[in-house]
Design a protein around this nucleic acid. Structure first.
Lengths: 366, 366
DNA sequence: TCGAGGAATGAAAACGTTTTAAATTTTAAC
DNA sequence: GTTAAAATTTAAAACGTTTTCATTCCTCGA
């Protein structure tokens, strides 16, 4: 025991440091090849415990030792073993994103995921895609993840006012953040796009352009942001005292051909709208297509203001006024704020309403 | 010691089984709440070792015991701890997908990921998104994952003939599969879409419709499938001895407005093409838009055959002939085959070329 | 009755961390 | 010079598996 101490610890202290330097051969190969805490400990002539604490910058380890350990770790390319850390601490270092089948069609979530990944880049967190692991519904998927501690936090989109996922996660106290708001009284973290302002400004734009009757393609009614859009739309409509119309049989998730046919037959009938709010690229294209079928020309017979999450629409149809929603940025915020939540930040401080980016070209303004 | 054996093991053997039944209270709560092998062992009056083997259906465990253990595990909702398994076995149970920044724009990968997730659903594998963890290039990201054993297998898309990622992974012997082929002599698993046939059939369709000069929007030249498309196109062109044109200054990744403007100015010049192959929705829309700017009418002055990965184009523009590529199915194959590869299936058997799904409407055929 | 041999089960070690509690060294105070 | 306190460092246990090797029990042939 004493001998061990003399050899392991005493020596480096008395004489010159004896661990190998940068250029020398550091191949203290472990069973699996990868360097571990023990590799560093051997090199530094320290105990594994000390190395562990030094790497987490515990104050009781002397500054000199900490720096030395950090340097060695860097030199041999040490990376803590995720499995061992997870086993010991119970933290998974994983963020899960729930993607429902809606996303498959639209490709909506790629940008968001890209943003989340960006936020996670410098951290030890990984992003795992949880389509719905063994379950059929989103809630079951969430439940499964929570029950089995498959992640430290959860992200999902398209909330409903009394979203079942939110309810579950609030009840279990599991860290999460969602894209979209709810009506629960308990505050919870969220990132949302200001769809009220989007719809309000979009409607005002149509009115400013002299349109006489405006219409809006609403999202499915069960989603929270449908109310926001409706509210923004109606506010602008009432302020201006203008005619309006809200299609009941189609919505944002309606297949493009159905929406197109609806629009074109509506255009043929009496008192058709001449201004459209489209909260998505696909719906905008469908409207353009439908109106074109009915012989109407964009920017002449009617106008569109569309929300776009790419630059596709602006590029293809400069005549469409667009208001941008930056989903990658939203994803970045989602990731960042969820990490804060996991570190026990107050839910009330984790609310973010992202402002619409209005792109109306000046030369087209009246 | 002897006493322990009598109590732990002997008893259930001699008397009636004494473990709790389905209805009874099974709350043998562990430190962290989750049931572990020890929970089952205690309930069953067996050793942890035996339970572990029973669950993996080792032949040396009696059938009766195996069934009993399985039943208990099911009843208490046991799920093996991923961290512990990973630590012990060295297998991560993780598949990583590398997404490069290109995907951000197009939303291309969502469908693929959905497919992969589908293939992984009944397995113990999770899908993690590796944008490029700490690195700038794709190769570095792959290297990082390999070096630190962050996954058991890797998936990526858009291969080049001498893809650096493929080279790295072949050299290190790390399991992977890619969407797209390469020119390496060592066989490696891949799933690819038959872009030759796509381009060949698309070109023939335009010719059959009576078009006099065909053009194709090619993918970036560095990508393998650019050659396949070019080859299919040229084969059909030569067979028919028809005029053709290959734009040099634009490609599939060109921003839509640039492509649109290119097309419209080209249409205005001499001997403009009247048939277009567009290997993507966005390029098709850009071509339609550009031709429309030049006063040309689709299906009258010119025709388009487009590859589509959604149903968007068919829905919006029934006049565009489309050939479908099912990316979700591709993802499913990618996932399934990568798992096979991880289980040491021969790389030569893991080659899949998915056939184009041709959607040419009958009533429009000549 | 005895051991041999096979069938079934069990103990213990290990994977690489973190953490609790203990040990050792250094410093400070007398 | 002691000795107590402060500053460092260390040993050992634990997280939940899997795996190697050992143990127990039973059957069977002599």
């Amino acid at each position: 025991m004493l001998l061990y101490r003399q050899f392991q610890h005493g020596k480096p202290r008395v004489t010159e440091p004896s661990w190998p330097r940068s250029g020398e051969n550091l191949e203290i190969t472990h069973k699996r090849g990868k360097p571990t805490l023990r590799t560093i400990a051997t090199i530094a002539g320290l105990a594994v415990t000390t190395v562990s604490r030094a790497l987490s910058d515990a104050p009781q380890i002397s500054l000199e030792t900490r720096q030395r350990v950090h340097r060695i770790a860097r030199e041999i390319g040490y990376l803590p073993d995720r499995a061992a850390q997870r086993l010991k601490t119970g933290r998974t270092n994983v963020i899960a994103i729930l993607l429902d089948s809606h996303e498959e069609v639209v490709g909506f979530s790629t940008s968001i995921m890209y943003g989340i990944a960006k936020a996670l880049k410098e951290t030890s967190y990984h992003l795992v895609v949880a389509p719905n692991f063994l379950s059929t519904t989103d809630v079951e998927a969430a439940e499964y993840i929570v029950r089995n501690h498959l992640a430290d936090g959860l992200i999902f989109t398209r909330t409903e006012p009394l979203d079942a996922r939110v309810r579950l996660l609030l009840e279990t106290g599991f860290p999460f953040i969602c894209h979209g708001r709810t009506e629960f009284s308990t505050p919870h973290p969220y990132v949302d796009y200001d769809n009220f302002t989007f719809a309000y400004e979009a409607t005002r734009r149509l009115i400013a352009k002299g349109r006489k009757k405006v219409a809006v393609v609403l999202p499915p009614k069960r989603l929270t942001f449908c109310q926001h859009i409706l509210h923004g739309f109606m506010t602008a409509v009432r302020e201006a005292g203008i005619a309006y119309e809200i299609p009941e049989t189609v919505d944002l998730d309606t297949p493009a051909d159905v929406l197109r046919d609806f629009i074109s037959s509506r255009a043929a009938a009496l008192e058709a709208p001449d201004g459209f709010i489209c909260p998505g690229e696909v719906s905008a294209l469908a409207v353009i297509s439908g109106m074109s079928d009915a012989g109407r020309t964009l920017a002449v017979d009617y106008d569109i203001v569309a929300k776009e999450t790419s630059r596709l629409l602006t590029q293809l149809q400069p005549k469409v006024d667009t208001i941008h929603e930056d989903l990658t940025a939203a994803g970045e915020d989602l990731g960042r704020m969820l990490l804060q939540r996991i570190n026990n930040a107050d839910a009330e401080d984790l609310h973010l309403l992202l402002p619409p980016q209005i792109n109306f070209p000046v030369d087209q303004a009246l």
